[in-house]
């Protein structure tokens, strides 16, 4: 059975990737994921906020009191390393890349262009096979226009592309007026892969404490439908590789994504829920399904159910929507 896959120029042993999650926080976690059979690992995200805040806070702490009093013009050894998170992250990349045989993809998570993007180069130098740019944009400011939000994605991508030679994937959210168009623009701007989709983690309200609480729910298979729809639409529209993420629980979910046109399928929630070894279950399931259906390689089945390149996509989608709605009506009655 040939599971070999190409993803943004990387040759992978199969189409299952571990996406950014706490599992890849440590070298041990990375090794366990690799041992379980995933084809590549996207490390946990280095967050823009971490980089910005750490650097800014540490610089402020070092500056406090410096050059103020003749006897103590500084309070820390000159050249003291002030960045906390980036060195740790780079150290992890270096050790992970040396410890496992599969590509290690670094993940940078941010929303605004800034100095943090320059860490992409350091990540490459530390041994990252590719960079996944996780653009987690939550435009809370009601005065920010949609175009500005889109432009920010392109600016960040551009800054990173300018500094690295390894492939760069963009992980984006689904909340665009025209998701397809931003995908095409990112594709044109040089994104080597599009990772669909980021999940918008909405905070919750605690009615007892009268406070807003952060809420992180693991994804469910039903959430996969949105990503699958867009992957099937974009399959023949973009040059970039397509990665599916969100809602991979069963081997069948992997199969569905591949049929829709995903080059690779990523999982975090299922691996968190069941442990890294669950990757083996997903891959075994995929192999079993292929054997049952008579496919010898993933290349044969990839994109079978994607929107054909020459079809009217809006109409295709609308048709699928109407058909699905009719079916729902039929089972649930009019509503």
């Amino acid at each position: 059975m040939d599971l070999a896959t190409r993803y943004m120029g990387l040759t992978l042993r199969n189409p299952l990737l571990a996406s950014a999650s706490p599992l890849s926080n440590t070298l041990d976690g990375v090794k366990r994921l690799a041992d379980a059979g995933v084809a590549a690992i996207v490390l946990y995200s280095l967050f823009e906020e971490q980089v910005r805040q750490e650097a800014e806070r540490n610089a402020r702490l070092v500056d406090a009191g410096a050059d103020s009093f003749a006897e103590s013009l500084s309070y820390f050894p000159a050249g003291a390393q002030l960045e906390t998170e980036p060195p740790r992250y780079l150290n992890l990349i270096e050790r992970a890349a040396g410890a496992v045989q599969i590509p290690v993809i670094a993940s940078l998570n941010g929303a605004t262009p800034g100095g943090w993007t320059s860490y992409a180069r350091a990540m490459q130098d530390a041994g990252a096979a590719a960079i996944e740019l996780n653009i987690y944009s939550l435009p809370g400011d009601p005065h920010t226009s949609g175009r500005d939000v889109e432009q920010r994605h392109l600016d960040i991508l551009q800054r990173v592309k300018d500094t690295v030679s390894v492939p760069v994937a963009v992980k984006l959210g689904p909340h665009f007026s025209s998701t397809g168009e931003i995908a095409l623009r990112l594709d044109r701007a040089g994104a080597d892969a599009l990772v669909l989709f980021n999940r918008f983690l909405q905070p919750d309200v605690d009615p007892e404490q009268l406070t807003v609480v952060p809420a992180v729910d693991l994804s469910r298979p039903a959430e996969a439908r949105l990503a699958r729809t867009w992957i099937s639409l974009l399959r023949h529209q973009v040059r970039a590789s397509l990665a599916a993420t969100t809602g991979v629980e069963e081997p069948a979910d992997v199969v569905k994504y591949l049929l829709a046109g995903a080059d690779v399928v990523m999982s975090a929630s299922a691996l968190l829920r069941h442990g890294p070894q669950y990757a083996t279950v997903l891959l075994d399931g995929l192999t079993a399904w292929m054997r049952r259906k008579g496919y010898a390689s993933v290349g044969e089945l990839r994109g079978l159910l994607a929107v054909p390149a020459d079809s009217d996509q809006a109409a295709y989608e609308r048709a699928g929507y109407v058909r699905a709605l009719r079916a729902a009506n039929a089972s649930l009655g009019p509503w």
Partner: peptide
């Protein structure tokens, strides 16, 4: 001067 404080500090 600010290199060891991180790219963000330099950029600001």
């Amino acid at each position: 001067t600010y290199g060891h404080r991180g790219a963000e500090v330099v950029e600001r």
